[in-house]
Amino acid sequence: MAIGQARSTGDKSKWAVANTVVLLYALIPVLWILSLSFKPASSITDGNFIPREWTLENYAQVFQVDLFTSALRNSIGIAIIATVLAVIIGTMAAYAVARLRFPGKKLLIGVSLLIAMFPPISLVSPLFDIWRGIGLFDTWPGLIIPYITFALPLAIYTLSAFFREIPWELEKAAKMDGATPLQAFRSVIVPLAAPGVFTTAILVFIFCWNDFLFAISLTSTSASQTATVAIANFTGASEFAEPTGSIAAAAVLLTIPIIVFVLFFQRRIVAGLTSGAVKG
């Protein structure tokens, strides 16, 4: 008993140390940006972790730039639409991959893997030309389409793993209870796959939100420029001032929606939702 306790205290402190190290590793850059965003331009380079003087000037400046507000709107709109579409298509495709036997299934999986491996940079210039040709350049769909394409493999993979976890028999039971395949899918499979759907949604949203490559190449005006691009285009108050403070403030603003999004959906990701379906 005593030994067991001693050991568990030892274990606990070891875990505490490990956790702290990981947390610091992940959080220091974020905190650093946070600190930068509150420093006045004069002390930006003083190297202090905690600002000597606090100011909201950087944030005010960010919102004075019209481009940033519209970019934020574009980012939110494009990321949400792309996420919703990718998750809907991904859910159906993943269900087929996990449950059905159909000709060309291997091909579908292979192609989606291929897309995931394809370096986006090699697609950017052809896309640029095509988009200009067909009028998708600098529009929302112009970004939403490539986002869906690149998010789908990820969505299909995560979701099909979740679908495989759901016992086949639940679906058979629904069929025996008189449900059509669509009813069975909607009232039994989807609710059970919800944690998977939300996980996938978070991942896809983050991917779209953080993308820079497509956004910078396929947009040019405030009509569709996203926040990541807007930050890169910041200029200082004068031509010679570095916009470090504003960039930091914008970066902080940019992470807020993601944090909100994750926190909102995380509550739905209840592990072990399927427990109790079968024996045990």
Partner: peptide, 27 residues
């Protein structure tokens, strides 16, 4: 199966885990 009007009890019970007993039976 839905047009045969027969009910089945599975070895694993296959209860819908996200529904209460009432909802399961009402399904």
């Amino acid at each position: 199966p839905k047009d045969r009007d027969i009910a089945m009890v599975f070895q694993s019970y296959a209860l819908y885990p996200h529904m209460t007993v009432r909802e399961n039976m009402a399904f």
